[in-house]
């Protein structure tokens, strides 16, 4: 009897704190604080994964989301100096329209959830949510396996990595997209013809 009671109290406390953190993410004026609030919201989501018997996912959530994605977002805030520039308060009409649209969406989805008859099987056995069965499902080529999406997602990650490097580096000289020269100051000038550039300041590599 004490187990379900503790579970219930934990759910409502963590749910309330998640909603508060999420509100902080969208309402704080300083973006760095919003990023920290996002980190807290993602951590409480890891708690939700534990409560849903998905311990491996909770670990993945902490490792990838809290440890990786939030750090990347903090980098983005620092590199674009969004932390210093205060986010302007949204104008009242913007606020009202945004709140109206999101509340309408909430009402719609809540109504859909409430009237839908879901086929619940809560009395069945708990999911075998250890890393072993997830890994087997990811690499299973048979029916119900996920080996093709797994390969596609690895390609996507590779493409995102290369794309991130290519987009964020300084502009490379024309016709030489992958040389190491992109960081020299003269190479940010894409309009000067190659023949007129100073080789020492990032002209054509001879």
């Amino acid at each position: 009897m004490i187990g379900p009671a503790i579970y219930t109290v934990m759910f409502w406390v963590v749910a309330a704190s998640t909603v508060l953190f999420a509100l902080a993410v969208v309402n704080t004026r300083k973006l760095l604080r919003a990023a920290i609030a996002l980190m807290a919201a993602l951590s409480t989501t890891a708690g939700f994964y534990v409560m849903l018997d998905a311990q491996f996912l909770a670990g993945v959530q902490v490792l990838v989301y809290v440890g990786g994605i939030v750090v990347l977002i903090v980098f983005a805030i620092m590199l674009t100096r969004s932390g210093e520039l205060l986010e302007d308060h949204p104008t009242p009409e913007r606020r009202v329209v945004g709140a109206a649209i999101s509340i309408m969406f909430l009402i719609l989805s809540a109504a859909a959830v409430w009237v839908s008859p879901f086929a619940e099987y809560s009395t069945g056995k708990t999911p075998p949510n250890d890393a072993l069965s997830i890994g087997k499902a990811l690499l299973d080529p048979g029916p119900g396996g996920y080996v093709a999406p797994f390969e596609v997602i690895s390609l996507l990650l590779l493409a995102a990595m290369i794309g991130g490097i290519v987009i964020a580096r300084k502009t490379p000289p024309p016709n030489q997209p992958f040389t190491s020269g992109g960081d020299l100051p003269g190479e940010t000038d894409v309009y000067t013809p190659l023949s007129q550039r100073d080789p020492k300041r990032g002209g054509p590599v001879s």
Binding site: V26, S82, D88, P90, S102, I103, L106
Partner: peptide, 22 residues
């Protein structure tokens, strides 16, 4: 649904692109 709606609100009201990403 509540968390998603809060994210939608942020998406519609933020002006900074990094805030939209959050």
């Amino acid at each position: 649904s509540v968390i998603f709606s809060i994210g939608l609100y942020g998406l519609l009201t933020r002006r900074n692109a990094v805030g939209i990403l959050l």
